[in-house]
Amino acid sequence: MSKFLEVKNLSVSFPTEDGVVLAANDISYSVDLGETLAIVGESGSGKSVTNLAVMGLHNPQRTQITGQAFINLESGPVDVISAPTEVVRRMRGKTMSMIFQDPMSALHPYYSVGDQIAEAWGLYNSGSKRDGFARAKEMLDLVGIPDVDKRVNEFPHQFSGGMRQRVMIAMALVNNPSLLIADEPTTALDVTVQSQILQLLGGLQKEFNMAIILITHDLGVVAEVADRVCVMYGGRIVENASIDETFYNPLQPYTVGLLNSIPRVDKLGSHRLSAIPGQPPSLINLPRGCAFEPRCQFASSVAGNLCKTTNPNLDEKSTDHFARCHLSTTQLHQLLAKNESGAK
């Protein structure tokens, strides 16, 4: 069974004066209708770059993209990487949509929100401007904006941050796309507004049976909404598993470290945070071996300097649980158990 979106061996690189930036390296993942895939990583991990490539939003003159990304439509699969730009353009907004981190700068400051939503609608529907505005009001109402008759004529700067993100969502969903890519949609928002937006997205996903790719750095948000998780580091996927496997049985030291390093509101106590030492890697001169090796507490436990010399493959460590690490599951579990008893 093929899923709605299947990304296969996707790589994205940018030639720069300092060298080629390998921003996304051999990425594969898939997401089905009604499913939420979270892509987690720190800045520069390649999570946005990968999905901008799926949307076809990279400047072709300054980007090299290889690999495939199939969207399985009823009419058959389309590889959005190799398809002609015009074909991909006609899929944007209709088959796949995207919302961004900062809804203020993502909306055009000179056009009313009604104008901007109606414009998106008008691309794939024939109808007058009045029809477009009627549809815009419908959408604004759907995403929970009060007083739509007045607000449809207002400009982005007249909305609050949360309301602007709702406008973005209304615009992205105006043509009923099957895939929504949400790039850090709540990072710029306050927590109380964040939970409103996440609830809204969840509701809309059920209503329209959408596939959602949620790009985020916040593991709390992931735990709240995702079905499946891809963890990215240094331009590569280092772990790909179901939500519960990712949180309760992480099989890659970076994921383990990340989960241990974040403080939690539900766990009181002034224990020391177990921080991951060191800095994220530069994407220009990635180490030959594992990108996480310089920061990995277990690298020395692997025989023969393997972590320094060879980049591990993304292996299926247990059923449907992929991780990129030279350590076997048993070895990792032993090391983690040793750590824990050491801490006690």
Partner: peptide, 14 residues
């Protein structure tokens, strides 16, 4: 290079 131009492109505008 503004975000709103990327949005316009994401909408599918030519």
């Amino acid at each position: 290079s503004e975000d709103f131009i990327r949005t316009a492109r994401a909408k599918g505008l030519s």
